[in-house]
Simulated assay, not measured.
Amino acid sequence: MASAPQQQLPLFYQALEPLSSEAHAAFKMRQLTHAKFLVGQHAIPITVDEFALVQRRLPIVFTEGDDPVPLALMGLNEGVNVFVAADGTLTENEMYIPAYIRRYPFMLARLAPGAQELSLCFDPTAEGIGASEEGQPLFEEGQPSAVTKSILEFNESFEQAGARTSQFMRDLKELDLLMPGETTITTEGVEQPFVYRGFQIVNEEKLSELRGDQLRKIHKNGMLPMLYAHLFSISLMREIFSRQMQLGLVPLPQPVN
């Protein structure tokens, strides 16, 4: 059976297989009440289209390195997600779920290096998809069902948002606005502060010093509201920390260097 390249699979995906009307004619999608793949996942990739919604609930930061990407933090420590219980159920009804999570187990991928066309693929190890009696069919009479068409449309929209995000990050890099981030949190009864590093944030000082032409450009292309959405969201790190404390998921602080 033809399969998509297996190297460097994205977060969550254990394998990747192109969806086929022949091989998967009997496959159905079941609605799940849990998401076990989210347990312990503390940082989720997001698109710039989501900044306004994400910043109300989750801190937005950027990864380190030459090609940073925006992340929504669902926990401050590796292996901690304060919004997902051990069985994979969400602990909040009003929680915004990033599109990266909602597209799983599907994604658009190139089936061969250098291929121009993207094909709808899925993770065959995922729960809720397979040849079963329950669920909504992915194919009907050899053709994609309404469910599959909707999935494809969502994934195409996600790819378009991903392209806009890549352009946003290129502009951000060109303006040299990112700097190493650090959050220090003190708590009663603990002598050493809790210090979180390993991410990037927008440098507010550099942002305020942009030239008039640069400001006009980022205002015109829609970057400015996104930058402030990110900056406003940083204060939520303390809320995430508080949730971890309540759950007993905060490791002992390390001495400040």
Results as ranks from 00 to 15, higher is better:
E156K: 15
M179F: 02
S150I: 09
M169V: 14
K173C: 03
K149L: 12
L177P: 00
R211Q: 13
I151E: 05
L236F: 08
Q160A: 14
H219R: 06
I218K: 05
S157H: 11
I234E: 01
A161K: 13
I218S: 03
E140Q: 10
Q192N: 12
E239F: 06
M226L: 14
G142C: 04
I201D: 01
I218D: 01
L236D: 04
G181M: 06
P144E: 00
P225A: 02
L177I: 09
G162F: 08
R238H: 08
A229N: 11
L207S: 04
P180M: 04
K220R: 15
V190N: 03
M169I: 09
G181Q: 08
K149W: 09
K149N: 14
L172C: 02
A163Y: 11
L178K: 04
H230I: 05
L138I: 04
E141I: 04
F139K: 01
R211L: 12
A161C: 07
E141H: 13
N155Y: 13
P180Y: 07
V190F: 02
K206G: 08
E188R: 15
K173E: 09
E156P: 05
A146G: 12
L227K: 03
M169P: 06
R211G: 15
D176F: 05
G142Q: 11
H230T: 11
L177D: 04
M237L: 14
R170W: 03
I218L: 05
P144K: 02
N155F: 12
R243L: 11
V195I: 11
F199G: 05
S166L: 14
N155M: 12
A161D: 10
L231W: 04
D213I: 15
P225H: 01
Q167N: 10
S235L: 05
A229W: 07
F154L: 11
M179K: 15
L227Q: 01
A163H: 13
D213Y: 13
F154S: 15
L178T: 14
S157C: 14
R243C: 08
V190Q: 06
E174R: 12
S242I: 01
R211P: 00
T187G: 02
A146F: 08
M179I: 15
M237A: 12
E174M: 10
M223Q: 13
L210Q: 04
E159K: 15
K217F: 09
F154Y: 14
K206I: 03
R216M: 06
F199W: 09
Q167H: 15
S145G: 02
N155S: 11
E141Y: 07
L210N: 05
F241E: 00
G198R: 01
G181R: 03
I151W: 03
T183R: 08
F168W: 02
L215V: 13
L138K: 01
A146Q: 12
E188L: 11
E209C: 03
E191H: 02
M237P: 05
M179W: 02
R243W: 12
D171W: 10
M179N: 03
K206W: 00
F232A: 11
M226A: 14
I201E: 05
D213V: 13
S242W: 03
E205Y: 06
L231Q: 08
F168S: 12
